[in-house]
Computed example of a mutant assay.
Amino acid sequence: MRVVTFCDIDESVIDSKHTIENFQSGCSGEAQIAILDINSIFDFEENKHEACADKFTTIAIVEDDSDYDAFKNFGIDAWIKADDFSDINELINLIEKRLFS
């Protein structure tokens, strides 16, 4: 899977079988998964079509419960709590199986 991030994450927790790109550093425009947080939601909204493939899924990193309210109007597909970010591979693998197989 090709993953683009719109926020700073610990990329080392994501399996090496996935290609990780950072939007601010440049990306191919073919990401199948976009990872964002509350601080990068507007960057994502303005640039998702140049950073992502035609078919893509979003994962929002949630710091606290108020983030859910902020994200609800942006069509986010999946959420992960910041404290649980080390479990991101399980979520990526589930997305891959359900949407891209």
Rank of each mutant, 00 (worst) to 15 (best):
I33P: 04
E45N: 10
K97T: 10
N89Y: 07
D43H: 05
D87H: 13
V13S: 11
R2D: 15
V4E: 00
T5N: 07
H49L: 11
A70S: 08
K97W: 03
D15P: 02
S16A: 10
I88C: 05
V62N: 09
C27Y: 03
S101T: 11
I76V: 15
E45K: 13
E50I: 15
I95Q: 01
A53K: 05
H18Q: 05
E90D: 15
C7V: 07
H49F: 14
Q24G: 00
E96R: 02
S16H: 07
S101W: 07
K81F: 12
A53F: 05
N22L: 01
S25Q: 14
C52N: 04
A82D: 13
D64P: 11
D64Q: 12
I76F: 04
V3H: 01
V62G: 11
I61K: 13
H18W: 14
C7T: 15
F71S: 01
S16K: 15
I35T: 03
I35Q: 02
S40G: 06
I95E: 00
D54M: 08
D15S: 15
K17Y: 05
I41V: 15
D84N: 14
L36S: 08
S28M: 07
H49T: 09
H49S: 12
E30N: 14
I9N: 11
A53L: 01
I88A: 03
E63Y: 11
I80T: 07
I14C: 07
S86G: 05
H49Q: 13
F56T: 04
D15Q: 04
N73P: 00
S40P: 03
K48S: 11
K72N: 12
S66L: 13
A53H: 09
F56S: 04
D83W: 02
I38C: 08
S16D: 10
F42Y: 11
Q32Y: 08
I9E: 12
D69H: 11
F44L: 14
D8V: 06
C27K: 03
H49M: 09
K55G: 00
V3E: 00
F85Q: 10
I41C: 04
F56I: 06
A60M: 11
I92E: 02
